[in-house]
């Protein structure tokens, strides 16, 4: 039995320890926010936050989760921090097809939670494992910068 915390709720699951966290989130918990874009840890569409860190859920075997705290977009979207990102992503035009967006939001949170006032270069580095084919990134970078400015005190 694998025990972990999913969006702040304690959950247990009995599964093959080699199963991917991504599949368990999507198939067993019906959390469809994390997306499979490549299944090789290259695109970041499946990124979640585990114990405060950005991690691609396609690269996480269930057996490696030991009482870890997993946050997906579904849990994060209930927070005040998310509301700021929701607004600034709209303002900056950071969402087009939306497939990379949940992972991108996770990357933004992982950055802002340790660096509330990032430079543009910090932001580039923070989202450098999250591929986006629509926006060319600059509008996403602007959105995260704006969130840091507008969300003073939240991070």
């Amino acid at each position: 039995m694998i025990n972990f915390f999913l969006n702040e709720e304690n959950v247990q699951i009995d599964c093959d320890p080699s199963f991917r966290l991504l599949d368990i989130l999507r198939d067993k918990f019906q959390l469809m926010g994390p997306k499979e874009g490549c299944g090789e840890g290259e695109c970041g569409a499946c990124a979640v936050i585990i114990d405060g860190k950005l991690i691609n859920s396609c690269l996480v075997a269930m057996g490696s989760l030991n009482n870890s705290k997993v946050i997906t977009i579904e849990g994060y979207s209930k927070t005040d921090r998310y509301k700021v990102l929701e607004r600034t992503f709209a303002e900056a035009g950071a969402v087009q097809c939306g497939f990379c967006t949940p992972g991108m939001i996770m990357a933004a949170e992982a950055l802002l939670s340790v660096n509330a006032n990032p430079t543009v270069e910090d932001i580039r580095e923070a989202i450098s494992g999250n591929l986006c084919r629509c926006t060319g990134y600059n509008m996403i970078i602007n959105a995260i910068k704006l969130a840091a400015e507008q969300g003073v005190g939240l991070w």
């Binding site: 994390p34 997306k35 499979e36 709209a90 969402v95 097809c97």
Partner: peptide, 23 residues
């Protein structure tokens, strides 16, 4: 004048259903 896109909220929150999300 820019507006908030019609599908902004559902794409941000992860609620938008792409083909692989349909069960």
């Amino acid at each position: 004048q820019p507006v908030i896109k019609k599908d902004h909220i559902e794409k941000m929150s992860g609620d938008a259903k792409y083909i692989a999300d349909i069960k």
